[in-house]
Amino acid sequence: MKFREISVIAQEVFSEGGRELASPCKRVAACGVLSNPLAGQPPTDDFSTLVDLSVTAGEVLTAKALAALSPLAPRGYGKGVIVGTSGDLEHGASMIHVRMGLAMRRGARGGPALIPGNAKVGPPGTPIDIMFGGLDDAWDYDAMDTMTVMVSDAPRADELLLVVAFLGGTRPNARIKGASPAQVLALVRQIKSN
């Protein structure tokens, strides 16, 4: 596996909504540009090459993102991919939804919460929104955040732009209170019983 390039984007937020942050917020995304071995090929249902590639690439990008996040510990994570225009949306899905999350969990010592992921097809310079979810708890509202990233010269038509991202601290000035998992479960039971 060879990257054409890796970009690490770090955002440190100091104020939001007219006030200084009560706790730190740092968003970091490691963006790797890779050749898509299935670009321009006839449609296939065998994505094993891309799944294997995603694990190796995910390990490298996770290490770079976590190094840039330091000294903060990760509280949330997210992932994304932009497939070049000679590829298929499912090429991207196979990169982020099958096994890449294992590399992220290992690196961050993450728990069982689902890692939000987003895939799209686009030309060089296409932005993608990376959604953050809690590392250990999918109901961690303060870890729910978003970061928009783009790499000006990627992905080319036969490439993939793979993104691994981590949130350190909390969403800027996070202060909403949502429903507890128990409240949501009770509501879902009520909805399904009607």
Rank of each mutant, 00 (worst) to 15 (best):
P43C: 06
T44G: 04
R19V: 10
V55S: 06
L38K: 12
T146D: 08
A30C: 00
C25H: 08
G18E: 10
C25T: 15
T126N: 07
D145C: 05
D140N: 10
R105C: 11
P37G: 12
G76S: 07
I82Y: 01
T62C: 05
V98R: 12
Y141P: 04
L114C: 14
G92K: 02
P112L: 13
L66V: 02
L38V: 12
E90D: 15
P37R: 08
A119R: 04
G80L: 05
G122Y: 01
F47I: 03
V33T: 11
P155L: 01
C25R: 11
P43M: 08
A154Y: 05
F132L: 07
A143S: 14
P124V: 07
T49W: 06
A143T: 05
I130Y: 00
V13E: 11
R75I: 07
A63H: 05
M144P: 00
P112T: 12
I130S: 03
G122W: 07
G80F: 08
M100W: 03
S86K: 13
D137Y: 07
M150C: 04
T49A: 15
P42T: 09
L34C: 07
G122F: 02
V28Y: 11
R109T: 11
L34Q: 04
I115E: 12
S48T: 14
P42N: 06
E20P: 02
A154G: 00
L34F: 08
P123H: 03
E12Y: 02
L38E: 15
P37F: 09
G133T: 05
K120P: 01
R75Y: 04
E90T: 14
P43K: 13
G107Q: 02
P71E: 00
P74A: 13
T44N: 00
M100G: 06
T56R: 12
Y141S: 15
N118A: 11
L53E: 12
T49V: 14
E12V: 12
V151Y: 00
S48F: 02
L34P: 03
G40P: 07
T62Q: 01
L53G: 03
P43L: 12
L135C: 05
T148Y: 01
D52E: 13
L102Y: 15
P37S: 10
P37Q: 09
G133S: 11
C31F: 05
C31N: 05
A108V: 09
G18C: 11
V28L: 09
D140F: 11
Q11H: 15
I9W: 03
G110C: 10
K64N: 00
P74F: 10
